[in-house]
């Protein structure tokens, strides 16, 4: 004997209600209501997602204090033009698909905050190279996509650049290099022996894409960072 509607559990009654044709509402009403609900839901979802892109949100964790301090010494934080690149500008893609992927992957940061993986300066230093190489790998693989949201070789006027910068950028174009090939450590301090690790990252990615094996690591990274730091101080 089938159970009467009153005797069914609330889940079954809800399921039945969802799939029963609406008799009290017209199709137009349901379409408009659904459309408005969709706007509200999607707007709220997107707005919440944008809140997680703020500098305050990114640095609200204790473990982010070290990299925040380092970033505040760089040209991306303080410069003559007043244009600032915050954490999400470099670490969160603009494109929806890549952005959602980055946000889901960022769950690991919450885990490591709770687990205290980099909770002390010693632990931070111990993990600095692996953290940096993970970011380099992403940037190299995406042709420095997040850098290119603001910077683009096509928009550079080499005549306005320092002679050395202009020649290095021309070399980068000629050798099919990307921003991160020279600008590692542009926002955070570099671990020792970083160049060797970066070379390995590049080689590992090159092995996946045959024919791309150029010399794609800057030979004068220290000079580039020194130059940009000097510009920050001005």
């Amino acid at each position: 004997m089938a159970a009467s509607p009153e005797n069914r559990g609330w889940i079954r009654r809800l399921w039945s209600w969802i799939w029963t044709p609406a008799v009290a509402f017209s199709s137009g009403f349901l379409i408009i209501a659904g459309f408005l609900a969709g706007i509200l839901f999607w707007g709220g979802f997107h707005w919440t997602l944008e809140l997680t892109n703020t500098e305050e949100f990114c640095t609200s964790c204790h473990t982010m204090e070290t990299n925040l301090g380092e970033y505040r010494e760089t040209i991306h934080y303080n410069n003559h033009s007043g244009v600032r690149a915050i954490c999400s500008d470099c670490h969160v893609p603009h494109e929806w698909n890549h952005k959602i992927k980055a946000k889901i992957m960022a769950v690991k940061d919450v885990y490591h905050e709770l687990a205290g993986t980099i909770s002390t300066p010693e632990k931070y230093e111990a993990h600095r190279l692996s953290m940096a190489s993970a970011v380099w790998k992403k940037m190299k693989a995406s042709n420095s996509r997040e850098c290119r949201n603001c910077h683009n070789f096509d928009y550079m006027d080499f005549t306005l650049q320092e002679t050395r910068a202009a020649s290095e950028h021309q070399r980068a174009i000629d050798n099919n290099m990307t921003c991160i090939d020279c600008h590692q450590g542009i926002a955070h301090s570099l671990p020792s022996d970083y160049l060797e690790t970066y070379q390995k990252v590049t080689e590992a990615l090159d092995s996946k894409t045959p024919g791309a094996a150029h010399q794609q690591v800057a030979e004068n990274g220290e000079q580039i960072r020194s130059f940009l730091t000097t510009r920050t101080d001005q």
Partner: peptide, 10 residues
Amino acid sequence: LELLGTIGGN
């Protein structure tokens, strides 16, 4: 994590 992220993004 990369796999989960890609699935979520899609």
